[in-house]
Amino acid sequence: MFLHALKRWYKIKSSGGSEEIRRHMSQVDNLLKKELPMDTVNVDINPSDKPACKYLQSAADNGLKHETRYIVTHLQKFTSILHWQYGYGKLPEDMKENYAYSEILGPRGLIKSSDIAVGIVLLAPAAFYHYHEHPDLTESYLNLSGYFSQNDQAVYPPESIVLNKPGKSHKITNDSSQPLLLAYIWTGSKEAISESRMVFD
Rank of each mutant, 00 (worst) to 15 (best):
S14P: 12
K54Y: 06
I120F: 11
E35T: 10
G167H: 06
L163R: 04
F78A: 05
I116Q: 08
Y147T: 04
T173K: 14
V72I: 15
S48Y: 03
I116N: 06
L6G: 05
K168Y: 00
S189M: 06
R8Y: 14
G17Y: 09
G16C: 10
R8L: 13
N151A: 02
E20V: 01
P157L: 00
G188N: 04
K7C: 14
S80E: 13
T79P: 11
T68P: 15
G89N: 07
I116K: 09
P166D: 00
K13P: 13
N46F: 05
S145V: 13
S113L: 10
Y131R: 13
I193N: 00
E133A: 03
R197P: 04
H83K: 14
T79N: 11
Y147E: 06
K77Q: 11
L163K: 06
G106H: 00
I21W: 00
L32W: 08
A126V: 14
S102I: 01
I172C: 02
Y101T: 03
N174T: 14
S102A: 11
N46D: 12
G167A: 01
K112S: 14
L181R: 07
L31W: 08
E133F: 03
E191N: 09
L110V: 05
I104G: 03
R22L: 09
K77S: 09
D115Y: 10
